[in-house]
Nucleic acid binder design. Structure first.
Length: 292
DNA sequence: CATATGTCCTGAGAGC
DNA sequence: TGCTCTCAGGACATAT
């Protein structure tokens, strides 16, 4: 499932479309229900034809293709992909940006389950729909103190809060579990139970996990859905410590067993030994008093 | 306001 | 073998 590292990999993988002039937007024949495209494809075609791609950037878990006047925002959700080469199959092609003369003729939007969305927005519309009032800051650029600040007054379990895109944008189910394991925090700890030093450790672990996952070009899970822009597998799945490893021995401590629980109707994985619920396991020297 | 739940969607895998 | 059922989890609408 495309989370921050996968979407970052998508953006880097299609960065070469910067500078290309758009010849049109098209929706291929597809016997599945079409993905949500706003406004209608014909209007996107009209508004984008002739303009040049000036930038490709990531907004949380979204790919944003920028022109002088518009932002084309692709939201992959569960199974959406952007591709510059032949897709995994032809039957799930959902849209294409066609370019004037040059190497890749098209940027494909592919989605097996069809939950992904495409939005063409003006800068103002983008700010209203996905501005900082709606979407939290990026975990890769926010500093540790501001990171902690995003969770002040939150009484939910830390794993659940990490998935809240209004607090931090880009973390999904897989990397939330991996980051909590990397810093030894139990997923059921409530945010307002965590001390400042624990937030600092979590922030550090999260950034490290995300950056490493980007280096490995994301995680291609057993269903094989996620692929980079050249239809190649990521490899971070081989580095997972807890995700989908329930029942196995922990690769880190060698003692604990990986458990699976359900939080907010989503699977959470953690090591029963590395991530105790008790607060007794304080790392380092000074224990920092709780902030209000 | 914060938090909880139901919905969308297809394909894989389980169970019979 | 082939059917039916459950589950996977992104974002968001609606309910509490």
């Amino acid at each position: 499932m495309p989370e921050l590292p996968e979407v970052e990999t998508m953006c880097r993988g299609i960065a070469e479309i910067v500078g290309r002039r758009i010849a049109g937007f098209e929706v291929p024949e597809c016997h599945y229900r079409p993905i949500r495209i706003q406004p209608a494809a014909e209007e996107i075609h009209r508004k984008l034809s002739g303009s040049r791609v000036t930038e490709v950037r990531r907004l949380g878990k979204r790919v944003v293709i920028v022109t002088a006047t518009h932002h084309l925002v692709f939201e992959p959700r569960m199974t959406g992909l952007v591709l510059l080469t032949d897709p995994p199959d032809e039957t799930h092609l959902r849209g294409a940006l066609r370019f004037e003369r040059g190497k890749p003729e098209r940027l494909w939007f592919w989605d097996r389950r069809g939950l992904s969305t495409l939005h063409l927005l003006t800068p103002d519309e983008l700010e209203r729909k996905w501005g900082s009032d709606v979407l939290g800051p990026d975990p890769l650029t926010i500093d540790p103190r501001a990171f902690e600040g995003r969770f002040v007054g939150c009484r939910r379990p830390v794993k659940v809060a990490l998935l809240d895109q209004a607090r931090i944008a880009g973390v999904g189910n897989l990397y939330a579990s991996e980051a909590l394991h990397a810093c030894g925090l139990h997923p059921e700890l409530l945010c307002d139970q965590l001390h400042s030093d624990q937030w600092t450790h979590l922030h550090k672990a999260l950034v490290e996990v995300l950056l490493t996952a980007i280096r490995y070009e994301g995680s291609t899970l057993g269903d094989g859905t996620y692929r980079n822009a050249l239809n190649q597998d990521g490899s971070y799945q081989n580095e997972h410590r807890v995700y989908a490893r329930d029942g196995e021995k922990c690769r880190t401590c060698g003692k604990g067993t990986i458990r699976r629980i359900v939080q907010a109707q989503r699977s959470t994985f953690f090591c029963e030994a590395c991530q105790p619920l008790s607060r007794s396991r304080k790392r380092g020297s000074g224990k920092v008093s709780r902030r209000k």
